[in-house]
């Protein structure tokens, strides 16, 4: 009997089911612009501190400079990741990951699955980790990373992050060569909605907006305002809302970058400003949230907060 390959939404639902059964909290996408699933607070902030954390979620990601007006079958300025974060990393996490591929219809034994060195570093988050990109028959479908540091703080215990590229993965399982041909859903009457039906117009409009229309004066102002807002929020001891301002700064910066409004010399300075905010938020999170978790020695946490706060701010 012939089975249709899973639709885009099947892939998502199967992954959610799989990781739910593995004990993860299934979150809904974070409602703020992020450049990657990693940047959502459920990963960035929850990587810190001594407590156990397990979550999985779909996250829409914005990369304004990757826009191609919907004309390139492999690139998008808005795309989806499926993000898993588990702290501490389980002993059999690679096997769990491979089993998740089986859950979306990939017979791992019939393919060439490889873990190819790809270490991760985020200068804006002051974060790094070691891991791989996972290839299936040469196609990169996942980033797999053991976080070592976030916001300048040691991650202890060590979280593992698995970030699936949902479009790539679905292209693979459906055997299509253009993102826009991905079958998103198929009704009982056979009515198909493709990725193009859902997002092609979005790509066209946002590419034009990102590259041509976005108001740079407004964005520079937004960056500056959000920077101030972030620090004020931190003074009130509220790292979670403060982190929203960090994300807003990141997005304003990315849009300015796409508009070509940031020169090379300014670029580094902006990245440093974002990093300073991100580190301050992480320090505040360590102080106000992570240390409230049980089994945490408060003085040790405060010490680490101090060290991390002053860390490698080059």
């Amino acid at each position: 009997m012939h089975h249709d390959p899973p639709t885009f939404q099947d892939v998502i639902m199967n992954l959610q089911r799989y990781w739910a059964e593995a004990g993860c909290v299934i979150l809904q996408p974070y409602d703020n612009e992020v450049g990657a699933g990693t940047n959502a607070p459920a990963t960035t902030l929850r990587s810190l501190g001594p407590g156990t954390w397990r979550c999985a979620y779909v996250q829409g990601c914005r990369r304004p400079t990757d826009g191609r007006y919907g004309e390139n079958p492999n690139r998008l300025q808005f795309y989806y990741q499926f993000q898993v974060l588990i702290k501490p990393s389980p002993e059999n996490i690679q096997e769990m990951y491979l089993a998740s591929l089986e859950a979306i219809g990939i017979d791992v034994a019939a393919h060439d699955v490889r873990f190819v060195e790809d270490d991760w570093e985020s200068p804006t988050l002051g974060a790094w980790g070691l891991g791989w990109e996972v290839w299936i028959d040469g196609m990169e479908v996942t980033q797999f990373t053991y976080f070592q540091q976030v916001g300048g703080f040691e991650c202890q215990p060590t979280p593992v992050e698995i970030a699936y590229g949902l479009e790539r993965l679905t292209m693979f399982v459906q055997g299509v060569d253009s993102i826009f041909d991905i079958v998103w859903s198929k009704g009982p009457d056979g009515k198909v909605f493709t990725y193009g039906d859902v997002y092609l117009e979005n790509e066209r409009e946002y590419s034009a907006y990102n590259f041509e229309v976005a108001d740079t004066a407004f964005l520079f102002q937004e960056f500056a305002d959000r920077e101030v807002e972030c620090m004020k929020t931190l003074e009130a001891g509220l790292p979670l809302p403060a982190y929203d301002s960090v994300l807003k700064c990141c997005h304003a910066f990315n849009l300015l970058d796409a508009r070509g409004a940031i020169s090379a010399t300014e670029r580094m300075a902006y990245i440093l400003r974002v990093r300073t905010l991100a580190k301050a938020v992480c320090a505040s999170y360590m102080e106000h949230v992570a240390c409230a978790e049980q089994a945490c020695d408060e003085s040790a946490c405060a010490e680490q907060a101090l060290e991390g706060g002053e860390g490698d701010a080059e």
């Binding site: 079958p73 034994a109 060439d112 699955v113 040469g138 060569d177």
Partner: peptide
């Protein structure tokens, strides 16, 4: 690094990757 018995599938997958890259 895969099973030689599935060479055809593995080649096909890699060919699609190359095609996307070259596109």
């Amino acid at each position: 690094n895969g099973d030689p018995a599935h060479a055809a599938t593995i080649i096909e997958g890699n060919e699609r990757v190359v095609a996307a890259r070259l596109y």
